[in-house]
Design a protein around this nucleic acid. Sequence first.
DNA 1: TTGTAAGCGTTATCAA
DNA 2: TTGATAACGCTTACAA
Lengths: 340, 340
Amino acid sequence: MAKQRVSIKQVADAAGVSTATVSNVFSGKKPVKPELAEHVRKEAEKLGYSINRAASFLRSGESGIVPVLVPDLSDPFYTSLITEIESHAQLDGYEIIVANSKDDAETERGRISALMSWQPEGMIVVPVSDDVPEQLFDLRDKFPIVLVDRGTEVEGFDTIRVDNAEAGAQAAAHLAEHGHRTVLIVASDMRLHGVRERSRGVVETIEAAGGSAEIVEVGPVPKVGSVHLGRWLDAHQMPTAIFAVTDMTTLATLTCLAERQFEVGKDVSVIGFDDYPWMSARRTPITAIRQPIEKMASSAWTMLKSRMSKDDEFAAPKPLKCTMEIRASTQDAKLTAGMA
Amino acid sequence: MAKQRVSIKQVADAAGVSTATVSNVFSGKKPVKPELAEHVRKEAEKLGYSINRAASFLRSGESGIVPVLVPDLSDPFYTSLITEIESHAQLDGYEIIVANSKDDAETERGRISALMSWQPEGMIVVPVSDDVPEQLFDLRDKFPIVLVDRGTEVEGFDTIRVDNAEAGAQAAAHLAEHGHRTVLIVASDMRLHGVRERSRGVVETIEAAGGSAEIVEVGPVPKVGSVHLGRWLDAHQMPTAIFAVTDMTTLATLTCLAERQFEVGKDVSVIGFDDYPWMSARRTPITAIRQPIEKMASSAWTMLKSRMSKDDEFAAPKPLKCTMEIRASTQDAKLTAGMA
DNA sequence: TTGTAAGCGTTATCAA
DNA sequence: TTGATAACGCTTACAA
């Protein structure tokens, strides 16, 4: 199993041309006579030649690499984002490298260092927390970085975020219209700006409608969150509606309600965050606030690309609007309050 | 925004040592006096130096790269697999590159070519179909490849798969015990060996119990699958139980049943495939066949690693066993038959 | 333990 | 349009 890698030189010899010509055939940077190019391609194919990116980059200085670092690869929000970003990157001739910081700041630091060793041309990061890693501050001026979803309030970075407060307000307005006055917000981690904003949107809107909202913090893991929420419900008056501020807390909420055999929509109205197939795969499908993932991805890419090419300022996109999918999990508030 | 990359030479100059010493400090391949090493590290830090993988690989011939190519990044089965594989790879000092073939053979070919240009040391692939791409056949002898989940019947490759027939049999036995004699198998694509095997396991077992099973093919996309399944249900006698052979067809099945307001567990028993949080986040949680993802990942990695190091034969793992999580979606068959 | 210098495969420059 | 050659940043003999 000899690792006999075929080099450009061997192809050049086989085709009877110079290495420069072979290079031009594959890079297309300089014109090569069609027949010659065809001939070279054939020989290369025969030998099983494949260009060596490492050598290519070393000489040209263009790695064409853009890492995408996310906090959790099992969270469909991030994988969707990655998939969309990849499509854009491919079209522009870039390769993305997917990395996972596993919701851990330490791992995140390690991943960033490792990723930088690829000599990437830019980077798209969803930080573990709003505390943007120091390394990124140091890189900031020399190196294009786009922050998505978190750390978006930090000065000096290009950022993509949704209008979280408005998303919360939208949800709350819908609940208020249906007569809900006591809303429970199931938050993952209030240290996250986005989570705080979503919650604020709910609180302000529901209070303006003469109601009140409370907040439980249950963490990012559905199973654990379900337990936390259960404890809260045991100790408090049952609200008529629940708003889960992330996809993971939506799962936590529904798990908890299911265990207690609450009937969603009837015993309690529920609004979830993000919109996935499983939310509609139930007798009472879940009303959901949907983040414009495609738009987030395309904005992030456009932003990064313009940073990678020019240096001049450009219009940063406004916070993107979320939309709401109204389904059967939100019903009029009736006699539900006080049943717990 | 000058792309002034810091090289080993600059660090060497700053620290007043040779490039060789700097190299040894970072690679650890040769001993360097602790104080000197510390000094070098400080200077490097000051300059913001980060090793250049491309150059390093070019010289050493060790890329340390292992691509993982999957057919769908929005399928949690694959992302879970990736996450697990990454953990193993990291421990052994390898970097994985995640690639997505988007369930398309053409894209798959393109991705494989692109991935090979990284000069990887091995590759883990979940092919789009059981027709393993030709490129892989050509590489097979020179280059370590592990096939997971699909294409596992092809001669000459190292493969990791679960015992699909047994998984189907397990599900069917459970249903048979509960008195079910008419089972509908919701398959994604019968051209896939794994899907056929799972179905075969069900058919054989249910027939041995004096019942019968039918198969609908609905494709890999939940929304589309739901429509196909609906059409089938309109045209046929309602079964007392449904077995969905993949996570995506589980979603299709539940979506369809929900739209028709069937009550899972009561109107019809359901067994799903793979086990995700949302399956338990419902009043009637779903009985599920769980693939041993962690084991699949670790076996795949072990296999690949031994191929990457030695050449000699080693014991290929036996097909891995799936387990069943019994939940409320499977109940005794009562008077459900014939209600459609 | 540290330094010197050659060379990995590619592309850019310059010449033909 | 094509060819010869130097150089990219690093590792690794080998020398000191």
